[in-house]
Structures are given as structure tokens and as C-alpha cells.
Design a protein around this nucleic acid. Structure first.
Lengths: 264, 264
DNA sequence: CCATCTTTGTGCACGCGTTCACAAAGGCAT
DNA sequence: ATGCCTTTGTGAACGCGTGCACAAAGATGG
């Protein structure tokens, strides 16, 4: 799960709650699998299990789309696939640009399933002149200079940022200025964008840190709070002179620079 | 942002809300940046802006950790870095294994910042015998047969799955059986795990689909519902005979197989 | 045509998360 | 010392999301 988002606080988009929208792709995936196995109908219970959610939640989610089920029977798989696809805007083609063709950018570009769901990689863009023209995943890498024209010419409205953190905001600004209104950010930075532009963030580092938190908690429970040896939540008198000789964490550390996925 | 999660519904972990835990890494990153610039203190307002959140939210988040601020002044950067690092369990080392060294797995392995935050890649594992021994990011790829022994010998409790969807559940089961209790899943599948195991999902495809939804909505607003030409929400009489000749979406499509990141 | 059985769709209540707004706390100048 | 100014920490209200539980709907069999 990509984590942070930068969405309008809770502006229900046409009656469909944001939480529901986030689950629609999950349902769609499960339904597509059923469709491939030629299963004609599915109950909310079965589908919910396949999608890893509660059946009541699923039914409520679908109720926002309309009454597409048949009581006593369930949902028509093909029909539901179509409805959800349409609702998500997957019945049309979305040209996408990937900026920053490092390890991650290349991995994303090579992802074969990209085209299978309405998304098409219109161009790969990198700032390194040495990369220009070099084919990655069958597409020639274009130089950053061409960014604006590529966006305009292809009518790109979705951009993927896989650059180092330092370049992300600048790239973002150029993408937005050129007309992009949705951004998927893999760089470890908080992007600031004007009103009306959606940003979603994917951050491996954050995910790992959250896992570490829970992992530590599990380990701590075993020995029933055996951690935090002595000076646990020390009263901390003077405001200065603290800094408990922090282990790592403090130093400069190679961060905010590395290619993409997993920053801190 | 990685999206789906599979967390205990809302079991507040030792008083710290899940939503707060998810933001701590964000604060930590902003604080680390300040620390590198030798900024001694920071106000909730400044830090909140840097982290892209509301200042009241940030203060409330910090209040769960304790009273680490000084009224009229702000927070001591170094001290806060240490406290958050400790809270997240980043003061200890977490050995991690990456399973599935395809495009994405390799990209993750090459991510330099991995070690900079308490995470250390203990091993890269792949099922392809041809990959065995081949060095990726300075580490020799190990064969899946060694999975259990690697986990045990290194005391690995966090696993990253970057395999094709078809192999994910099986790999997951083996990881869990070997002692892994936290999993970061890049494969496009819902993993089922026993109680006590945390799973977080990162899914590019889902993120893009969510963006597409909002993008479509924006486009629809311009022309004020010019979409949905005629048969919009057709009453749908007979349960059978529907399937509105769904465009893409239905066919077999290359999915549930591709390496990792972006499935559907 | 009626009874029964299955499954949807949803009203309702509860809890988490967010935000406001302000009192308390501390620094600083006079 | 005293008063002012800044900023934290939090009580309280509100809204979204979740899950229960059930009535309505429809299919199916006799």
C-alpha cells in the first residue's frame, strides 16, 4: 500500500466515498480473475473473501455504484467488471509519462501489465543526457527538455515521478505547468501542488518503518515491556543539553538523494 | 502511496493511533533534513508544513509520544529525531529479505538508502536457478530452497515479496512458517496470513486506478456531465443478457503473472 | 400460485481520526 | 519581579468509515 496521500480532505466525489474508491481496484482484480475462469455470478460473501474485505463493506461499497446485484443470487461478474471499470475511468486510455529512469523507473517501465488496464506509457523521461535515446522496455528514453512537448502532444494527464528526492519538486512543477493533474510520486518528498492536482505517494521506506514499529511492539510484548531499560521517559529538565546520543538517525546519512522507492 | 493494508482493525498499539504511526516516518524525514542543516529547534507550524500536514494534527501526534516540546519555543530537533526513531524501532537493526529478484526486486535491492534507517538487506532470494549466485546490488542471489535457513540464521522478521502474483501466497506461507511476522507485499494479490502477522501492500496499479478515477471526474466536471451519453444507468431488466460489451477489462489480459509492482 | 430459502441493500450505532479553539506554560523584555 | 508574547498540549465537537443486523427482494421448488 502506497501510503501518504494528498487528497482533498474528504470531498466525497459524486457520492462515492474515498475509502470505497480505494477498494474498487481490489474488487475489480478479484472479479477479473473470476471472469477469466468464466464464473458467471458471485455472492458478496465470496467476492469479499477474495478481495480480503468484509462482505457488508463490499455490499455497501457497491451500493454507492447502484443496485447491480440480484437478491438470492449475487452479482453478475461481467457486468460488475464493466461497471467498476467504467466508474474508475478504465474504459478509456490514459497516457502516462514516467520521469526518472533509474532502477525503479526502469522497473516500472518494464512492467508488462501497464497497458492491460487502460494505462499506456507514452514516454520515459530522464535528465541524464547519456540516457537519451537509450531504449528501456522498448521505448527510447527522452530528455527532460522534451518534457513539456511530450505532455502536450500526447495529452498526458498522469505523471509518475521516480526521480531522486532533490529533483522531484522541480519535475512536479514542470509536469503540472505542462498540464498534468495527477501525480504518482515515488520520490521521498512531500510535493506541493496547486489546487486541483492529485498526488499519491508510494514510499517503501515509510512502509518498512511502520512494519518495524509493529514488529518492535510484538517483540516488546513477549518480554512484557522489557525494553526501555532505565531512563525511559526521563522528565527531561533543561530544554538544551538533551540529545541522548542518538544512535543512527542523526548523522547525514545517504538520504533524500537516492533514486526512488525507498527513502526515509 | 502504498495502499491496502491488513492491520488489526484499530487496535491502538500502546496508545499510539495507527494513523499517527503512519505519519511518524514523515515527521522523522522532515526532522532529519532539519538536523542535517543544524537547525536546533522547530515549531509545530514549521514542521507541519515541511511534513505536509496540519499543525494541530502534528501536535496531537506528538502528544501521544509524550511532552517533548517547549511552549513558546517549539521542539528540539535532535531530541525529537531520537524519540521518533526509538518509537519506530529504528534504533535497532532489522534484517530484511527480498524474495523475487525481477525488475522490481532488483530495483529495491539497489536502493542505497536501505541501510540508512535501520534496515539491512540480509539476502536476496529468487526461485530461478539461473539467478542463483548472480550478484545483484553486491549480494549473491540465493535460491528459494535456502529461504528457511536464511530466515532462521539471520533472525529475519521482515520479508519483502516482489514475486509474480502466482507465487506470492506460497512464498508468504513459507516466510511466515520460517518466522517472519511482517511482510511488505508488492505482488498484486491479497495475502492471507495468520493472526499476529502484519502485511502491508504496495500496489502501483491500484494507485493509478485511483488517480484515474479522480482524473475522470475532473474531466467530467469541465463539461458538466457530458459523459455517459445515452444509456447511462440503464434500468437493467433481465439479470442475464447484460454484459454491455465491455471494452477491455474482460479478456484474459496479461495479469496476475507479471513480476511485481503494477498489477491490476 | 404459494411457501421457503438465499442474498442483497441499508438504517443505525459506534469508534477512530481530524480540526477547532483555548487555557496553560514558558521565554523574554522591561 | 511583572507583564506580554509565543507556542504547546488538549478538551470537545464533528464527520467519515465500519460493522451489525434485519427487512425487502427475488429465485426456486412444489
Amino acid at each position: 500500500m502506497a501510503t501518504g496521500r494528498t487528497h482533498r480532505p474528504a470531498t466525497r466525489s459524486r457520492g462515492i466515498p474515498e475509502a470505497t474508491v480505494a477498494r474498487l481496484p481490489l474488487y475489480l482484480r478479484a472479479l477479473t480473475a473470476l471472469s477469466e475462469r468464466s464464473v458467471p455470478t458471485v455472492s458478496s460473501e465470496e467476492l469479499a473473501t477474495a478481495a480480503g474485505v468484509n462482505s457488508a463493506k463490499l455490499r455497501k461499497d457497491f451500493s454507492y455504484l447502484g443496485s447491480y446485484g440480484t437478491r438470492g443470487v449475487g452479482y453478475d461478474v461481467e457486468y460488475l467488471v464493466y461497471q467498476i471499470s467504467r466508474e474508475l475511468g478504465l474504459t478509456q486510455d490514459w497516457p502516462v509519462v514516467i520521469v526518472g529512469i533509474g532502477n525503479l523507473g526502469a522497473a516500472l517501465a518494464n512492467y508488462g501489465g501497464f497497458a492491460s488496464r487502460g494505462f499506456r506509457v507514452a514516454a520515459l523521461i530522464d535528465a541524464d543526457p547519456a540516457m537519451a535515446g537509450k531504449p528501456v522496455a522498448g521505448l527510447p528514453v527522452r530528455h527532460t527538455d522534451e518534457l513539456e512537448s511530450i505532455i502536450t502532444d500526447n495529452g498526458v494527464s498522469i505523471g509518475v515521478i521516480a526521480t531522486p528526492a532533490g529533483a522531484a519538486q522541480q519535475v512536479c512543477d514542470r509536469l503540472v505547468a505542462a498540464g498534468v493533474t495527477s501525480i504518482l510520486n515515488f520520490a521521498p518528498t512531500v510535493l506541493s501542488v496547486p489546487e486541483g492536482v492529485d498526488v499519491r505517494k508510494v514510499d517503501l521506506s515509510i512502509e518498512l518503518q511502520i512494519l518495524a514499529f509493529h514488529e518492535q511492539r510484538k517483540a516488546g510484548e513477549e518480554t512484557t515491556s522489557a525494553q526501555e531499560p532505565a531512563a525511559a521517559v526521563q522528565p527531561r529538565s533543561s530544554a538544551a543539553a538533551r540529545t541522548p546520543a542518538a544512535g543512527r538517525a542523526a548523522g547525514k546519512g545517504p538520504d533524500g538523494d537516492v533514486p526512488a522507492v525507498m527513502p526515509a
